[in-house]
Design a protein around this nucleic acid. Structure first.
Length: 162
DNA sequence: GCCAACGTTGGC
DNA sequence: GCCAACGTTGGC
């Protein structure tokens, strides 16, 4: 065994009207920078947890139906979110400075779409997903960890052909 | 559109 | 350091 850390798993939320999984697939190299995270807990997961090669569930929020729709992977680890430094950007944060950025982003690349998008209704009640952060009452975290066990269950459900 | 839940701000 | 007020998220 190498000393390399085990791959970790994550879930990110995006409103599809703003940026959808299809938008990611249509991006150059199917890759984009994940800007606009303005929550400390979510930032810490990106900054401290996300490593190259980690896999990410792509979740569409505030849409009907809200669902996990695809899989992406981390291709660049955390670096400064430049949109926080731009006064004209809607995500501008005057507290963030170029020499000491408050907010970070990573780069993610699309891997594949789920054969079956998985709505919250699909996921609720599934054995093994009881503790999934996404399903917790009042959960609003836009970047959240997923356990290997949860990942395996979601992947199996999402890729099962009918 | 409603509203519960949550995170942040700011007065004290 | 407490906590009320406020703004935002996001399911429904």
């Amino acid at each position: 065994m190498s000393a390399a850390a085990a791959r970790r798993y994550w879930l990110v939320k995006s409103e599809p009207d703003v940026f959808s999984f299809a938008d990611l697939c249509a991006s150059e190299d199917q890759t984009t920078y994940w800007d606009g995270v303005r929550n400390y807990q979510a930032r810490n997961f990106m900054r401290d947890g996300m490593k190259r090669g980690d896999l990410v569930l792509f979740y569409h929020s505030s849409t009907e139906p809200a669902a996990i729709v695809g899989i992406a992977k981390v291709v660049r680890e955390a670096y400064a979110d430049h949109t926080a430094l731009d006064p004209r950007d809607p995500h501008y944060d005057p507290k963030s400075k170029a020499d000491a950025p408050t907010w970070m982003m990573v780069d993610v690349r699309a891997v594949e779409a789920l054969v079956n998008p998985l709505t919250l209704a699909d996921l609720r009640g599934v054995k093994g997903l009881e503790s999934m952060v996404l399903l917790q009452r009042g959960s609003r975290l836009s970047v959240q960890p997923v356990t290997a066990k949860e990942w395996a269950i979601v992947y199996r459900m999402g890729m099962k052909t009918r």
